[in-house]
Design a protein around this nucleic acid. Structure first.
Lengths: 129, 129
DNA sequence: ATCTGAATTGCGAATAGTTCGCAATATGAT
DNA sequence: ATCATATTGCGAACTATTCGCAATTCAGAT
C-alpha cells in the first residue's frame, strides 16, 4: 500500500505540501533534513515541511536518525539504518535484519549511538499510552 | 585513572567549573542534560557548562544520548547504554556487552534509534582525521 | 610568593532548528 | 456548489547551544 493511501486511510487530507514532501522523500536515496527538504521545495512553507514530517513520524511512515541535533528523515518503506560520514554527510544504507555489515568496511573510525526509549512500569500503570 | 587526572594529562587546566561539572556527573546515577546540570550548579555560567561538556565529549570522557534533540550525558567510566521512559524520563542502564536485556521487561512499547557515523573512503583519502 | 602568558571564564548577543497563533485557504463529504 | 473542518502560510516566539570579547584564573618559571 502506498504511503499516500495510508495517509488517506488515517484520515489526513491530500494537500500540495504533503504530496511534495512525499515526492521528495521518495526521490531521495539517502537521508534528508527538514532544512534541506525545505530548500528543495521552496514553494511550500518551512512550517508545513516540519508539520508534514512530524505527521509522518507520528504515523511511523518515516524513520528518523539524529546527527548533531539535526533530524534526518527517510521513508520507512523497509527496516534499515544508515552509516553516515562525519565529514561530508555521505550515507550508506544497511538492512538491519541482514548481515550487510561488510558495507562498514567503506568507513573508518566508526562511532555509534544507540538510543532506546519505552514506557516504564510506573508510567504504564498510571495511564495507558 | 580518575577523570581529573586524565584531563590534566591532556593539558587542560583544573578550574572550578570543570571540577563542579565532574562532581555532579559523578553523583548523577542517570543521564543528565546540560540544562539540568546548569540548574544544579547555579554558580557557574551556562556557556561554561556547555564548554566543559563539549570538552569531555571530545575527549570521550562522557557518553551522549540524544532524546528529542536534547543531549543527555553520563560519565564514560564503563561501556553502557540507557533505556529511557518516553513519559517521565526515568532511565535504566544496561551494559552493552552483557545479556542484561531482561531489564527491558520493565519497559513496554520500546522504540530505538541506532546511529552510526564514520569517515567514508573518499574523506579518508583527502585528509587523515 | 610572585609574575606572566596562555587558557578559561562570564556575560550578553547571536544562531539554528523547530514550533506556535491565527487569519486565510483548500479539501472532501454531502 | 456548499460547508464544516483540516491545513496552510506568515511572522513571531521558543529552546538549545554557541560565539566574541574583555576580565579573570591557572600553572609553571623565577
Amino acid at each position: 500500500m502506498s504511503i499516500s493511501t495510508k495517509l488517506a486511510k488515517l484520515g489526513y487530507k491530500f494537500t500540495k505540501p504533503r504530496l511534495q514532501v512525499l515526492n521528495y522523500l521518495e526521490k531521495e536515496k539517502s537521508l534528508i533534513s527538514a532544512r534541506n527538504l525545505h530548500k528543495k521545495i521552496k514553494a511550500i512553507d518551512r512550517a508545513s515541511v516540519y508539520r508534514t514530517l512530524n505527521l509522518l513520524e507520528k504515523e511511523h511512515l518515516v524513520n528518523v536518525e539524529i546527527i548533531e541535533k539535526e533530524k534526518l528523515y527517510c521513508l520507512a518503506d523497509h527496516p534499515h539504518h544508515h552509516i553516515i560520514c562525519r565529514k561530508c554527510g555521505y550515507a550508506e544504507e544497511f538492512d538491519c535484519d541482514k548481515n550487510e555489515f561488510k558495507k562498514f568496511y567503506n568507513f573508518s573510525n566508526i562511532h555509534h549511538q544507540l538510543t532506546l526509549t519505552g514506557i516504564c512500569n510506573k508510567c504504564n500503570t498510571i495511564t495507558n499510552e
